[in-house]
Simulated assay, not measured.
Amino acid sequence: MIDSAISDMLLENKEHFLIPASSVATVQEDNSLMHAFLVLNKVRYSKIPVLRGDDELVGLLSMPMITNEMLGMEDLDTDVLDKKCVGDVMEKNVPAIENPYDVEEVMHLLVDNPFLPVVADHNEFTGIVTRKEWMKSFNFLVHNIDKQYKLEPIKQSEPANH
């Protein structure tokens, strides 16, 4: 469990954690791979959320997922980009969070993910939380904790003589 003082300091900049859905590039699961290829190429993100219908998060898509579909043993088949859709190649069962301010859960999941999709009821996509923003808060913490708290080492007990 994270100490409450640490948690409080990490959350001092919490208004910057959630990047709202309206500011995040996404694709629909029924979009062609050509469309997704163009979107990913334009925004230059490593992965983007995949949505269904009324903003329901259903997965993530990356450029390697698309290019893997194009690669054959002898050549590059770009025709597949018009034949397949995002839902055919996307990563499913992705980690998503409901509370972008649950310090313990977010920090644990950001170890292996550059960002986390944030969802509301019925898996409605509401935005993302990025590792970059959390690292800014962690940087603030390590440079300022001694300005807000008196830190002292816990006295170590001497080893017992056996």
Rank of each mutant, 00 (worst) to 15 (best):
Lys136Leu: 12
Asn68Asp: 10
Ala120His: 03
Ile66Ala: 05
Val58Met: 11
Glu133Ser: 11
Val111Ile: 15
Glu74Met: 08
Glu105Gly: 07
Asn93Pro: 02
Met135Ala: 05
Leu109Arg: 09
Val89Met: 05
Val58Trp: 03
Met70Leu: 12
Asn139Ile: 01
Phe115Arg: 07
Val94Asn: 08
Glu74Lys: 05
Asp82Trp: 06
Asn113Trp: 09
Val129Ser: 10
Thr130Val: 10
Leu76Lys: 01
Met107Lys: 03
His122Ile: 06
Leu76Tyr: 11
Ser137His: 03
Val103Met: 09
Met135Asp: 07
Val94Phe: 06
Pro114Glu: 11
Glu133Thr: 03
Asp88Gln: 08
Leu60Ile: 10
Glu69His: 04
Pro114Cys: 06
Gly72Met: 11
Glu74Ala: 06
Glu124Ser: 13
Trp134Cys: 12
Gly127Gln: 07
Gly127Lys: 00
Pro95Trp: 03
Asp121Leu: 11
Val106Gly: 09
Pro95His: 05
Pro64Cys: 06
Lys136Ile: 07
Ile128Ser: 07
Phe138Trp: 08
Glu133His: 02
Asp75His: 04
Leu76Cys: 04
Val111Trp: 08
Thr67Asn: 02
Pro95Ile: 04
Asp77Leu: 04
Pro95Tyr: 04
Asp112Cys: 13
Ile128Leu: 12
Ala96Tyr: 15
Val118Lys: 08
Val118Glu: 14
Glu69Phe: 02
Val119Met: 06
